[in-house]
Design a protein around this nucleic acid. Sequence first.
DNA 1: GTCTATACTCAGATAGAC
DNA 2: GTCTATCTGAGTATAGAC
Lengths: 206, 206
Amino acid sequence: MDRLPAEGTKKKILEASIDLFSRKGYSAVSVRELTKAVGIKESSLYNHFRSKEEILECIYQLFKEERDLALPSKDKLSFIAKNTRIETFLLQGMESFKRSVDDELHEKMWRILNIEQFRDQRARDIILNQMYKGTIDFLEHVFQAFMDENKIKQGNARLLAMQYQYPIFTMMTEYLLLKYDDRDTTDVENNMQEHLQFFLHNLHIY
Amino acid sequence: MDRLPAEGTKKKILEASIDLFSRKGYSAVSVRELTKAVGIKESSLYNHFRSKEEILECIYQLFKEERDLALPSKDKLSFIAKNTRIETFLLQGMESFKRSVDDELHEKMWRILNIEQFRDQRARDIILNQMYKGTIDFLEHVFQAFMDENKIKQGNARLLAMQYQYPIFTMMTEYLLLKYDDRDTTDVENNMQEHLQFFLHNLHIY
DNA sequence: GTCTATACTCAGATAGAC
DNA sequence: GTCTATCTGAGTATAGAC
């Protein structure tokens, strides 16, 4: 339930689980397969987790903790809005978002959430609250802060947040699906840039 | 492999499979559970499908066929662009899209694709080609047709298509997750309307 | 096409020696 | 904390009577 342990068998089990669950889904991975990948016997697993289910629960917790650390706290926003251009902020945010998506463990946990989202209430909650609502809430504050600084045109900050972020969610999905098959992702990356430019352009005329 | 049979045991098997797979994922559904839901013995299933896997393949085919029938053919587009306002067209498209999403079988098949997308190349292909690429291609032609009629400002039709459709993909995901838990979807539906209005507004100043 | 009966493999999990 | 050995139930699939 705690952070990813720095080392040891428990860490190995978690990493192997994240990898296997993300490729085949929780249900399709057996404890046999899992422990074989780790290099321990089935029975040894139960010294670290009470059940296969507890491993999944632990993965969800890891994802949540990692997410909570990812976004800058909201009280820094007015400072940021004062000292940064919106172009710079969004560009940096996009880069940082892409880095987190390119982080292998994060990417795999994200896939697990997608696979389990209809089977498992906990996955649905994380997606709806942490990912969708959490990101939009944050961006709403961002745009509001920039509006308060008169750096972008006054308007509906929440609508702006959605106009900006929702396409990115879809593009990220595309990106990850392509990457999963080792296919070229240049097009999607260009689309993201183009989207950013288009959005910035509209920011000033909205 | 063919269309959904009008009646009979095979149809019942398919419907039960679509329902169960969409809630638990293919791997988590056993042939025992499936045949029990249908009301036949396990062995009888094999008179209709060679294997559990063949059922899934059949579901993928059904989804593809249904999708191919959903969009108006491209050669009607210039006629439509001549005789319809873009507002009307997009509004109708949104309604028809929502109807298709509200269709129970379609919704369930869509969920199956989402669950299996990382385990199964076929699901990935359908999502990337049929859903994403297919829809964007179509909308690109739509916007191009309206540009040719000078009904909207000249510009990058493909970019417009993405700006319009990508947020809708994310909202649809949100919508379906909320609906899955019988939660209120008013907010998402309002967001869709707001998005449409915002987009139309920008169409004329782009 | 449906059934009963069965084959055989694999699932998650535990007991107890080391 | 890891192992060997084992339990019990569930998994997909088949043979053959009706």
